[in-house]
Design a protein around this nucleic acid. Structure first.
Lengths: 347, 347
DNA sequence: GTGAAAGCGCTAACAT
DNA sequence: ATGTTAGCGCTTTCAC
């Protein structure tokens, strides 16, 4: 690890509790009590202190508080990156919910620490934050193992943890995929392609399973040639779709494991001179904001993205309030959103 | 200010430099020196320390470092919210650039502190972060006044500061607007509407000025009836466009001060049964990712969003490295991106 | 109910 | 080149 050379002290000429104590004529531990929410302070004293603080423009120094054993009132959010409608919607929910609390947000993007996740997480948890929110953590194992104590508060967003009981919020991936596939089936499609997500993520395999189950339920054999690996990204969806179209038996419909992939598929289909949904129907998963903006508007399975973020925060705060609280998993419902990208097959 | 009641200590059972010092058989200030990048440490000692640290799994505690007068290696980012393609692109640039440095990012959204901006900023600057990035700060004045010291490092993104010399990165708003309007003019349009942004922002007035200048340059009288106030949001653009269409003289083209507004305009136009670009042309500003996804694809003025974020970070790091560095303003070029939402007028 | 004092993990003089 | 020591601003015993 390289570190910045320390050339200069930060300018720290701020008002501290000592100043406030002087101004209010009390000891500085009293000031501390007032601001840390300690209950047994005389009303008069409290008022004096608060007034003095306001007069001076005092604001608490979170690092000092945290160092001294209190809380930093900061929660960490670990995401791959923010350049993704799916994630920014969840972040929006997180932000909204956090705004109702006294917590601030520290944003960590993992892409910069590929291969050093453990170090990174340790640093984060060791440092500043009271708890951690992990969104689709690709290397869940590494992350969690690195947590400094068994009971460091964290919650997993949209990723199951098979190793230990982890507080988790996710959605009905299997059911959503089942419903998407059934919808296509109901439209009359028989050859339905599936573009997977990142196969190491539980959401991806759950969706694949849902797709399979729906086909089987309709007594349609699952054709491995119609299942093709994607990566949850637009370009991956594009490439996969191209390969799918080049196969001898072309699907009349495609279910992409997320909207981003579906966008790529849309592009690929058009590039082959085919029309959507006339020649091939496309359905996605997520319902990110862009889904209703693209042309044609994407039929998709909606995840309550904002709500996911909110729930994640609530679970974390619960755990922060009561460390004994045991891990639980909240699974939110998905919902089919019918728009313009699906139609019955032509033939 | 309410604060969280402090029910429990954070579990802090982490390895400190004292442990490392013991393990390595040196004093703990030596360990500090090694990890804070101090130069004059014997190679042997350094190696011993690093090895001991690795063995123990030591990671630095940033709060303690920062409290003790060092740097936290965290920069703060103050944004209205992240739910906006414009902002998330800039954030992406910021994140990319930060990844090359040793800095982490603390994200603050202002919407939660409406009316208490000063307090909020003070708290931020007082606390943790070494410097601050302010994106389109609506209440620039309040923010800047609240900075604890005259020389607290900050940079303003896409907002001019008329009060004091502030390090700023922005784009050629005037020129971009001039070019957009000229393009429409060149297509043959005479009645060109303008949907403004948030009027208190310099970017908005600059764009309006550019629009006016282009018209004047083409000897077309600026018609106040064609200028209508928006708010940089989709819904605002939608509402403004509706009003514009209801005026006696309908514009044949509209320039929206940003893409989000343009999207709203698109919707409004369609809702009135008109076709784009046949009946009315639309041009935007920003070129957020969605601009090339909407239908029809939006012709717009591109801002180098990612680059803006990168430059902002670079400017801040410069300032952090050398506090004496004086304020400067970097203005990046915009560029016309022609897509499908503009055509010559019909009549 | 309030004050005094120790200490959180670290940096930065000041010594040696 | 390395050790010693005094804080940074705060919370939290422990006294009174």
């Amino acid at each position: 690890m390289k570190f910045q050379k320390n050339t200069r002290k930060k300018s720290h000429n701020s008002i501290t509790i000592v100043d406030v104590a002087k101004e209010a004529g009390v000891s500085y531990s009293t000031v501390s009590r007032v601001f840390s929410g300690f209950e047994f302070v005389n009303e008069d004293t409290r008022r004096k202190v608060v007034e003095a603080a306001n007069r001076l423009g005092y604001v608490v120094n979170l690092q000092a508080r945290s160092l001294a054993g209190g809380r930093s009132n900061i929660v960490g959010l670990l995401v791959p990156g923010i350049d993704n409608g799916y994630i920014s919607e969840i972040v929006k929910g997180i932000d909204q919910e956090l705004a109702n609390s006294q917590y601030d947000l520290m944003l960590y993007t993992t892409h910069r620490y590929a291969g050093k996740e453990a170090y990174y997480v340790k640093m984060i948890a060791n440092g500043l934050v009271d708890g951690l929110l992990l969104i689709v953590p690709l290397v869940t194992e590494n992350y969690l193992q690195a947590l400094p104590t068994q009971d460091f508060p964290y919650v997993l967003v949209d990723q199951a943890d098979s190793e230990r009981p982890s507080t988790t919020v996710d959605v009905t991936n299997w059911q959503g995929a089942y419903e998407a596939t059934s919808y296509l089936l109901g439209l009359g499609h028989k050859r339905i392609g599936f573009i997977t997500g990142l196969t190491q993520l539980s959401s991806s395999t759950e969706r694949l399973d849902g797709y399979r189950a729906a086909l089987e339920h309709h007594r349609i054999a699952v054709n491995p040639d119609l299942i093709i690996e994607g990566n949850y990204e637009t370009n991956g969806g594009y490439l996969s779709m191209l390969r799918l179209l080049d196969r001898p038996i072309r699907p009349t419909a495609v279910f992409a494991a997320n909207d981003l992939s579906a966008f790529g598929a849309l592009e690929a289909i058009r590039e082959r001179g085919l029309e959507i949904p006339r020649d091939v129907s496309v359905i996605g998963f997520d319902d990110i904001p862009e889904a209703s903006i693209v042309y044609p508007k994407l039929t998709t399975i909606r995840q309550p993205l904002i709500q996911i973020g909110q729930v994640a925060v609530r679970l974390l705060l619960e755990k922060l309030d009561d460390p004994e609280k045991e891990a639980r998993r909240v699974t939110l419902a998905t919902e089919l959103v019918i728009r313009d990208s699906c139609a019955p097959p032509r033939e």
